[in-house]
């Protein structure tokens, strides 16, 4: 077997298959590398809910803006443009953009008279870093969390979207949680799940693997990122997560409530009772269908005509890792 043989196979593949790449970074590499040009039209790659910014609720943003009257909001840059019901963090001045959550600790210690709130958003990749923060958090630094778990989201998709044939699992989430949590998912829903890295070659080979396993009815997990993803993940990180967080239901923008999909801790600011959250549907916006892999962004009637990165209507256009933002750019 060589790469030319694989490319030829992928270009001439004649059965229909739909593969969901769960991670926004995978979506980005697929678009930027031109991988789609190497594939037969019968291989449909769709994006999943793997951009944490895109699935963070409107109410979370509203709460941050409310808290900014009392706290200096600390946030990752991705979150700044995401709209709440009226405003985004771009509209407030009482904020600081950070790259590293641990910088928040230094900031709070250096300025003990000021009050800070970190917008703790993310999946399991970032989660242990917040757990590390909680080990050292001074009293003048609080967290408002929107921390989501990817496995319940994939279960939700498998329960509700029957057309997905295989998944490319998010490699850096897997670096923390390991390969094992995906085993029961693959078996229960009869889907090949490929854990893969982020180079174009990694992704191309994972697509080939997914197709081979689908054809062979091999519904299991194949780890093609073993250098990073161990069977049991990062056990130190998982122990720290267990120490500080417990599981709760959560609201996913564009989807609704997914059971057992949030990590929360006891002193977390309360966003709202999630049962009470009712999001206003934006006319024409099909972000929900994009996140659930029903359509590709170009099939949304607002895409490029009304919804652009400078005037993002839906959450998938806001983030650089949102499917619409990636396809647009």
């Amino acid at each position: 077997m060589d790469i030319e043989k694989i490319k030829k196979y992928l270009k001439n593949y004649s059965n229909k298959i739909k593969i969901m790449e769960v991670c926004g970074t995978h979506t980005s590499v697929i678009r930027k590398s031109g991988i789609k040009d190497l594939l037969s039209d019968n291989i449909n790659l769709v994006s999943g809910p793997g951009c944490p910014v895109c699935v963070t609720s409107v109410f979370y943003i509203d709460k941050l803006i409310e808290l900014s009257k009392e706290y200096i909001i600390l946030t990752f840059g991705d979150m700044v443009k995401v709209k709440g019901s009226k405003k985004s963090l771009a509209d407030i001045s009482n904020k600081i953009v950070l790259y590293n959550p641990m910088q928040a600790i230094d900031l709070a210690l250096q300025n003990p008279t000021k009050k800070y709130c970190f917008a703790a958003v993310g999946f399991e990749t970032t989660l242990p870093i917040y757990a590390l923060m909680l080990e050292k958090c001074p009293d003048n630094l609080k967290l408002l969390t929107s921390l989501k778990s990817i496995i319940p989201a994939l279960e939700y998709i498998c329960d509700n979207e029957k057309t997905i044939d295989a998944f490319l699992a998010p490699g850096h989430v897997c670096a923390v949680i390991g390969a094992k949590p995906f085993y029961s998912l693959a078996e229960k829903y009869k889907k090949p799940i490929i854990i893969t890295g982020f180079s174009p070659l990694h992704i191309l080979l994972s697509i080939y693997t997914a197709i081979q396993m689908f054809e062979l009815k091999n519904y299991s997990v194949k780890n093609l990122y073993k250098n990073v993803v161990k069977e049991n993940g990062n056990e130190n990180a998982l122990a720290l997560i267990d120490k500080h967080f417990h599981i709760a239901d959560d609201y996913w923008r564009g989807i609704g409530i997914i059971k057992n999909s949030a990590y929360v801790f006891d002193d977390d600011f309360n966003v709202n009772n999630i049962e009470d959250i009712i999001e206003t549907k934006i006319d024409g916006c099909r972000c929900t269908d994009v996140i659930l892999g029903r359509i590709n962004p170009i099939e949304c009637p607002l895409f490029r005509k009304f919804c652009t990165p400078l005037n993002a209507i839906g959450p998938c256009m806001v983030s650089s890792e949102g499917a619409c933002g990636i396809v647009y750019s």
């Binding site: 959550p101 641990m102 990749t125």
Partner: peptide
């Protein structure tokens, strides 16, 4: 090592 958001999250053995 693999670095994410200013933290090492995994050691690479190969």
């Amino acid at each position: 090592v693999l670095v994410h958001a200013g933290c090492v999250i995994q050691v690479l053995d190969k």
